[in-house]
Amino acid sequence: MTPLLSVQGITKRYGAHIGCADVSFDLYPGEVMGIVGESGSGKSTLLNCMAGHLAPDAGQVVFDTRADGPKDTVTMSEPERRMLGRTDWAFVHQHARDGLRMGVSAGGNVGERLMAVGERHYGDIRGKATDWLERVEIDADRVDDRPTTFSGGMQQRVQIARNLVTGPRLVFMDEPTGGLDVSVQARLLDLLRGLVRDMGLSAIIVTHDLAVVRLLADRLMVMKSGRVVEAGLTDQVLDDPQHAYSQLLVSSVLQV
């Protein structure tokens, strides 16, 4: 089986500092990969390098494109990469307002990706937008309201709908539950888990919350100071951490 995404030796430096160094892994279709680590461990840098938001200093990010098979997205032309960014890829930001247009209605936000890939029928666009808002548990009669009138959890769900409407195959998520209270977090996680399973999505989730990866991720990478210190199946890493830092991370979780 061809991996959907094959990352090889990704390195990003900020001057003398290391953002992330020599990260390699393969992600297969339908698989969810979690990346955990403390603040400043380079997990967001890595995610941005993979999603094409940052140019890595070295390494390859080979994506299995629908048309041409495996292709290095670091060296592909910018129009191609941006096209991927609005068709096969999705990016869920930690803060919904980074990923949404706050001055545009929820329906317009969800419809934007459809219009960006050439849909020109208002009725169809609106129908799909309403359908997707319902799938993320937002009432259809809120379709014309702006995200500013929504709660934080709803904004995050609109952002997810906006990203999934074009049926992507790979979703990058940067702390998707950050800044939400625990009950809203739980519902969002439940929703995400359902969508990922139903659509057969592959996902890369960056988080510092071990509960999130326990629920969603099949595999786990633990990062420290820009390097991967441990990788393996989620349960294996969380239940039997080998590296000293992983042990620290797992034991830092408060038990209620």
Binding site: R101, V104, G107, G108, E112, M115, A116, Y122, I125
Partner: peptide, 14 residues
């Protein structure tokens, strides 16, 4: 990349 232009028209209609 002109999808955004249609978002404006979409907002008008909605």
């Amino acid at each position: 990349e002109y999808g955004l232009m249609h978002v404006k028209l979409y907002e008008d209609i909605s």
